[in-house]
Design a protein around this nucleic acid. Sequence first.
DNA 1: CAGTTTACCTCGCAAAGTGATGGGTGCAAG
DNA 2: CTTGCACCCATCACTTTGCGAGGTAAACTG
Lengths: 114, 114
Amino acid sequence: MDRELLKGSTPILLLSLLTEGPMYGYQIIETVLQRTGGSYTLKEGALYPALHKLEAAEFISSYWQTQANGRDRRYYSILPAGTAFLAAKKKEWSLFVNMVEAFVTPNGSSGTKG
Amino acid sequence: MDRELLKGSTPILLLSLLTEGPMYGYQIIETVLQRTGGSYTLKEGALYPALHKLEAAEFISSYWQTQANGRDRRYYSILPAGTAFLAAKKKEWSLFVNMVEAFVTPNGSSGTKG
DNA sequence: CAGTTTACCTCGCAAAGTGATGGGTGCAAG
DNA sequence: CTTGCACCCATCACTTTGCGAGGTAAACTG
């Protein structure tokens, strides 16, 4: 997967994931890895800064939770502002996709065969 | 349009445009501007370095052409290697889009309403 | 006790886009 | 002839983002 293509899509991914419920960092990485069948390993160096930025913007909030075994995990959950931001991002996303596809397939031919 | 989303999509855009025929820099900017209805202004600082990189990789080639009025224009045209590269990029692109959409719409709902 | 897994995080680097800036030509207005 | 604009090329410093590597620490495994 082209890393340059990924740039900018991380917030959408994160916010989308969090609409399914609170998650912690390590879990997010594992989830992305599993759902993409191993083709996309979200890196810690990309995840944590992105999470912190989202939290600083008050799109998500975090809380520490201690498990039965004593380990602490930092859970992130989406805030109303994050949901609104995600909705805006989704629109931007489809605009972006439509734009690129318009150039890639100017005549409208469905050339996306895998 | 989110500029971070655009990162990495420029080569696909450029190569796709050039499959329609040779074009020069200024023309590319104007074309993108018109086709997107003014929503995406491809910047010179993004275009020229991208074009030069593509040429260095021998995906495209350029030639200067003098117009009737004496002005010179640098035309770029796609090479066979560029066509092949574009095909690979297209696959990556659809993989990428499918991946993001899988997270954005996990249940498969077509929620991309304007 | 040592190694692996879980779980958090930061830092230096590379790649790409933005805004600013600059060079030069042709043409119309004053 | 000078000013200004449209055309046309291009580079540079800065910012953002992801990557790879490194660091800390606790619990489980052998």
